[in-house]
Design a protein around this nucleic acid. Structure first.
Length: 241
DNA sequence: GCGACAG
DNA sequence: ATCTTGTCGC
Protein backbone atom coordinates (compact mmCIF):
# COMPACT_ATOMS: atom_id res chain seq x y z
CA UNK A 1 0.00 0.00 0.00
CA UNK A 2 1.01 3.58 -0.47
CA UNK A 3 1.97 5.26 2.80
CA UNK A 4 2.18 9.03 3.08
CA UNK A 5 5.02 10.66 5.02
CA UNK A 6 3.26 13.45 6.88
CA UNK A 7 5.76 14.03 9.69
CA UNK A 8 8.62 12.37 11.63
CA UNK A 9 7.97 9.96 14.50
CA UNK A 10 11.14 10.77 16.44
CA UNK A 11 9.48 13.44 18.54
CA UNK A 12 8.92 14.30 22.19
CA UNK A 13 5.52 13.84 23.86
CA UNK A 14 5.16 17.61 23.78
CA UNK A 15 5.67 17.77 20.02
CA UNK A 16 3.44 14.75 19.56
CA UNK A 17 0.43 16.52 21.05
CA UNK A 18 1.07 19.55 18.82
CA UNK A 19 1.21 17.31 15.75
CA UNK A 20 -2.16 15.81 16.67
CA UNK A 21 -3.72 19.27 16.93
CA UNK A 22 -2.44 20.02 13.44
CA UNK A 23 -3.54 16.73 11.87
CA UNK A 24 -7.04 16.70 13.36
CA UNK A 25 -7.99 19.54 11.03
CA UNK A 26 -7.50 17.21 8.08
CA UNK A 27 -9.76 14.44 9.37
CA UNK A 28 -12.88 13.51 7.44
CA UNK A 29 -15.53 12.14 9.80
CA UNK A 30 -18.42 11.35 7.46
CA UNK A 31 -19.76 8.85 4.96
CA UNK A 32 -17.51 5.86 4.41
CA UNK A 33 -17.61 2.84 2.10
CA UNK A 34 -21.01 1.18 1.68
CA UNK A 35 -20.99 -2.31 3.12
CA UNK A 36 -22.30 -3.63 -0.19
CA UNK A 37 -19.25 -2.21 -1.99
CA UNK A 38 -16.65 -3.58 0.43
CA UNK A 39 -14.41 -6.27 -1.04
CA UNK A 40 -11.46 -6.32 1.37
CA UNK A 41 -11.08 -5.34 5.03
CA UNK A 42 -7.90 -5.33 7.12
CA UNK A 43 -6.98 -5.58 10.77
CA UNK A 44 -3.76 -4.42 12.45
CA UNK A 45 -2.23 -5.02 15.87
CA UNK A 46 1.05 -4.91 17.78
CA UNK A 47 2.84 -6.86 20.50
CA UNK A 48 5.78 -5.77 22.66
CA UNK A 49 8.60 -7.51 24.48
CA UNK A 50 11.43 -6.06 26.53
CA UNK A 51 14.95 -7.42 26.42
CA UNK A 52 17.10 -5.53 28.91
CA UNK A 53 16.88 -1.90 27.88
CA UNK A 54 15.56 -2.64 24.41
CA UNK A 55 11.86 -2.91 23.59
CA UNK A 56 10.97 -4.87 20.47
CA UNK A 57 7.64 -4.42 18.72
CA UNK A 58 5.97 -6.74 16.25
CA UNK A 59 3.41 -5.25 13.93
CA UNK A 60 0.91 -7.25 11.91
CA UNK A 61 -1.59 -6.49 9.16
CA UNK A 62 -4.11 -9.08 8.03
CA UNK A 63 -6.24 -8.53 4.92
CA UNK A 64 -9.50 -10.45 4.60
CA UNK A 65 -11.94 -10.86 1.75
CA UNK A 66 -15.32 -9.35 2.59
CA UNK A 67 -17.94 -10.48 3.44
CA UNK A 68 -16.46 -13.99 3.46
CA UNK A 69 -13.83 -12.90 6.02
CA UNK A 70 -11.24 -15.28 4.58
CA UNK A 71 -7.57 -14.32 5.00
CA UNK A 72 -5.98 -13.29 1.70
CA UNK A 73 -2.77 -11.64 2.92
CA UNK A 74 -0.72 -11.26 6.10
CA UNK A 75 2.35 -9.10 6.82
CA UNK A 76 4.62 -9.23 9.86
CA UNK A 77 7.22 -6.60 10.76
CA UNK A 78 9.62 -6.13 13.69
CA UNK A 79 11.22 -2.90 14.95
CA UNK A 80 12.71 -1.39 18.11
CA UNK A 81 10.53 1.02 20.05
CA UNK A 82 11.59 4.01 22.12
CA UNK A 83 8.44 6.09 22.51
CA UNK A 84 6.71 5.18 25.82
CA UNK A 85 3.07 4.32 26.27
CA UNK A 86 1.24 7.53 27.12
CA UNK A 87 -2.56 7.63 27.16
CA UNK A 88 -3.53 9.84 24.22
CA UNK A 89 -0.24 9.38 22.38
CA UNK A 90 -0.54 5.71 21.47
CA UNK A 91 0.00 6.34 17.75
CA UNK A 92 3.53 7.58 18.37
CA UNK A 93 4.39 4.20 19.91
CA UNK A 94 2.53 1.95 17.48
CA UNK A 95 2.42 3.73 14.12
CA UNK A 96 6.07 3.24 13.03
CA UNK A 97 5.95 -0.55 13.06
CA UNK A 98 2.41 -0.68 11.68
CA UNK A 99 3.13 1.68 8.79
CA UNK A 100 6.16 -0.43 7.87
CA UNK A 101 3.87 -3.46 7.71
CA UNK A 102 1.33 -1.58 5.60
CA UNK A 103 4.03 -0.64 3.07
CA UNK A 104 4.33 -4.35 2.30
CA UNK A 105 0.59 -4.91 1.85
CA UNK A 106 -0.33 -5.48 -1.79
CA UNK A 107 -4.12 -5.73 -1.62
CA UNK A 108 -5.33 -2.29 -0.53
CA UNK A 109 -8.37 -2.78 1.74
CA UNK A 110 -11.56 -0.74 1.57
CA UNK A 111 -11.32 -0.16 5.33
CA UNK A 112 -8.85 -0.91 8.13
CA UNK A 113 -9.75 -1.77 11.74
CA UNK A 114 -7.33 -0.86 14.54
CA UNK A 115 -7.11 -1.94 18.16
CA UNK A 116 -7.56 1.43 19.81
CA UNK A 117 -9.71 4.53 19.45
CA UNK A 118 -10.09 6.81 16.48
CA UNK A 119 -12.15 9.98 16.90
CA UNK A 120 -12.90 9.06 20.54
CA UNK A 121 -9.71 10.75 21.65
CA UNK A 122 -8.92 13.87 23.77
CA UNK A 123 -7.81 15.75 20.64
CA UNK A 124 -9.99 13.70 18.28
CA UNK A 125 -6.97 11.95 16.75
CA UNK A 126 -6.58 8.47 18.16
CA UNK A 127 -4.50 5.71 16.58
CA UNK A 128 -7.08 4.80 13.94
CA UNK A 129 -7.55 8.42 12.84
CA UNK A 130 -3.84 9.16 12.79
CA UNK A 131 -3.02 6.12 10.64
CA UNK A 132 -6.02 6.74 8.43
CA UNK A 133 -4.42 10.02 7.39
CA UNK A 134 -1.09 8.35 6.61
CA UNK A 135 -2.72 5.51 4.66
CA UNK A 136 -5.36 7.73 3.05
CA UNK A 137 -7.92 4.97 3.43
CA UNK A 138 -11.09 4.62 5.58
CA UNK A 139 -10.24 3.42 9.11
CA UNK A 140 -12.14 2.43 12.25
CA UNK A 141 -11.08 2.36 15.89
CA UNK A 142 -12.04 -0.76 17.89
CA UNK A 143 -11.02 -0.35 21.53
CA UNK A 144 -11.53 -2.89 24.28
CA UNK A 145 -11.87 -0.16 26.88
CA UNK A 146 -12.85 3.50 27.18
CA UNK A 147 -10.42 6.40 26.96
CA UNK A 148 -12.80 9.36 27.18
CA UNK A 149 -16.53 10.04 26.95
CA UNK A 150 -19.54 8.35 28.51
CA UNK A 151 -22.04 5.84 27.16
CA UNK A 152 -25.11 4.13 28.54
CA UNK A 153 -24.77 0.36 28.88
CA UNK A 154 -26.08 -1.09 25.58
CA UNK A 155 -28.77 -3.79 25.64
CA UNK A 156 -27.60 -7.36 26.08
CA UNK A 157 -28.31 -8.63 22.59
CA UNK A 158 -25.59 -8.76 19.96
CA UNK A 159 -25.60 -5.68 17.77
CA UNK A 160 -27.07 -3.37 20.40
CA UNK A 161 -25.18 -0.10 20.83
CA UNK A 162 -25.34 3.29 22.52
CA UNK A 163 -23.67 6.58 21.59
CA UNK A 164 -20.33 7.46 23.20
CA UNK A 165 -20.52 11.16 24.06
CA UNK A 166 -17.81 13.63 25.04
CA UNK A 167 -18.41 17.32 25.67
CA UNK A 168 -21.81 17.12 24.02
CA UNK A 169 -20.46 15.48 20.90
CA UNK A 170 -21.06 11.91 19.69
CA UNK A 171 -17.56 10.51 19.20
CA UNK A 172 -18.32 6.83 18.78
CA UNK A 173 -20.41 3.99 20.20
CA UNK A 174 -20.38 1.27 22.84
CA UNK A 175 -21.25 -1.87 20.87
CA UNK A 176 -22.39 -5.26 22.20
CA UNK A 177 -20.42 -7.55 19.92
CA UNK A 178 -20.81 -10.52 22.26
CA UNK A 179 -23.62 -11.14 24.78
CA UNK A 180 -22.39 -11.41 28.35
CA UNK A 181 -19.19 -9.51 27.55
CA UNK A 182 -18.39 -5.84 28.09
CA UNK A 183 -19.09 -3.62 25.04
CA UNK A 184 -16.53 -2.82 22.32
CA UNK A 185 -15.84 0.89 21.82
CA UNK A 186 -16.12 1.76 18.15
CA UNK A 187 -15.23 5.16 16.71
CA UNK A 188 -14.53 6.59 13.26
CA UNK A 189 -10.88 6.71 12.30
CA UNK A 190 -10.87 8.64 9.02
CA UNK A 191 -13.12 8.95 5.98
CA UNK A 192 -16.08 7.37 7.76
CA UNK A 193 -18.90 8.24 10.18
CA UNK A 194 -20.04 6.64 13.45
CA UNK A 195 -23.07 4.90 11.99
CA UNK A 196 -21.19 3.31 9.10
CA UNK A 197 -18.28 2.36 11.37
CA UNK A 198 -20.60 0.43 13.68
CA UNK A 199 -22.32 -1.23 10.74
CA UNK A 200 -19.02 -2.44 9.28
CA UNK A 201 -17.65 -3.66 12.61
CA UNK A 202 -20.79 -5.73 13.21
CA UNK A 203 -20.54 -7.14 9.69
CA UNK A 204 -16.99 -8.24 10.57
CA UNK A 205 -18.00 -10.00 13.79
CA UNK A 206 -18.48 -13.74 14.03
CA UNK A 207 -19.69 -14.11 17.58
CA UNK A 208 -16.44 -13.18 19.26
CA UNK A 209 -15.84 -9.99 21.23
CA UNK A 210 -13.43 -8.66 18.61
CA UNK A 211 -14.27 -8.36 14.90
CA UNK A 212 -12.37 -10.92 12.75
CA UNK A 213 -9.77 -8.55 11.26
CA UNK A 214 -8.64 -7.39 14.71
CA UNK A 215 -9.03 -10.80 16.33
CA UNK A 216 -6.87 -12.52 13.72
CA UNK A 217 -4.24 -9.77 13.75
CA UNK A 218 -4.09 -10.04 17.53
CA UNK A 219 -3.66 -13.80 17.48
CA UNK A 220 -0.99 -13.68 14.77
CA UNK A 221 1.08 -10.88 16.29
CA UNK A 222 1.14 -12.55 19.69
CA UNK A 223 2.18 -15.85 18.17
CA UNK A 224 4.99 -14.20 16.18
CA UNK A 225 6.25 -12.20 19.14
CA UNK A 226 6.43 -15.32 21.31
CA UNK A 227 7.84 -17.61 18.65
CA UNK A 228 10.78 -15.30 18.03
CA UNK A 229 11.41 -14.38 21.66
CA UNK A 230 14.55 -16.50 22.06
CA UNK A 231 16.04 -15.43 18.73
CA UNK A 232 15.32 -11.77 19.45
CA UNK A 233 16.89 -12.00 22.91
CA UNK A 234 20.04 -13.56 21.42
CA UNK A 235 20.25 -10.97 18.64
CA UNK A 236 20.04 -8.17 21.18
CA UNK A 237 22.52 -9.70 23.64
CA UNK A 238 25.08 -6.89 23.07
CA UNK A 239 22.48 -4.32 24.02
CA UNK A 240 21.40 -6.06 27.20
CA UNK A 241 23.00 -5.12 30.50
C1' DG B 1 -5.96 19.78 43.86
C1' DC B 2 -7.81 14.94 42.78
C1' DG B 3 -8.98 11.19 39.57
C1' DA B 4 -8.79 9.00 34.82
C1' DC B 5 -5.97 7.13 31.67
C1' DA B 6 -6.60 3.15 24.23
C1' DG B 7 -2.22 -0.42 24.20
C1' DA C 1 0.81 -4.14 26.48
C1' DT C 2 3.23 -7.73 29.73
C1' DC C 3 4.18 -10.67 34.03
C1' DT C 4 1.48 -15.75 35.12
C1' DT C 5 -1.65 -21.28 37.48
C1' DG C 6 -5.28 -22.59 38.23
C1' DT C 7 -9.92 -21.93 38.03
C1' DC C 8 -15.02 -20.28 37.58
C1' DG C 9 -18.42 -20.03 34.01
C1' DC C 10 -20.91 -20.41 29.37
Amino acid sequence: MHVLDLHPWEVSPREAAAIQQQLRTRLVIEDGPAVADLRFVAGADTSYRRYGTVTVAYGVVVVLRFPALEVVETRVVRTRVTFPYVPGLLAFREAPVLLEAFRQVEQTPGVVLFDGHGFAHPRRLGLASHLGLFLDVPTIGCAKSRLIGKAEEPAGDRGAFTPLVHKGEVIGAAVRTQPGHAPLFVSPGHQIGVERAVEIVLACCRGAFLPEPTRLADALVNEQSRRHADADRAALAPAID
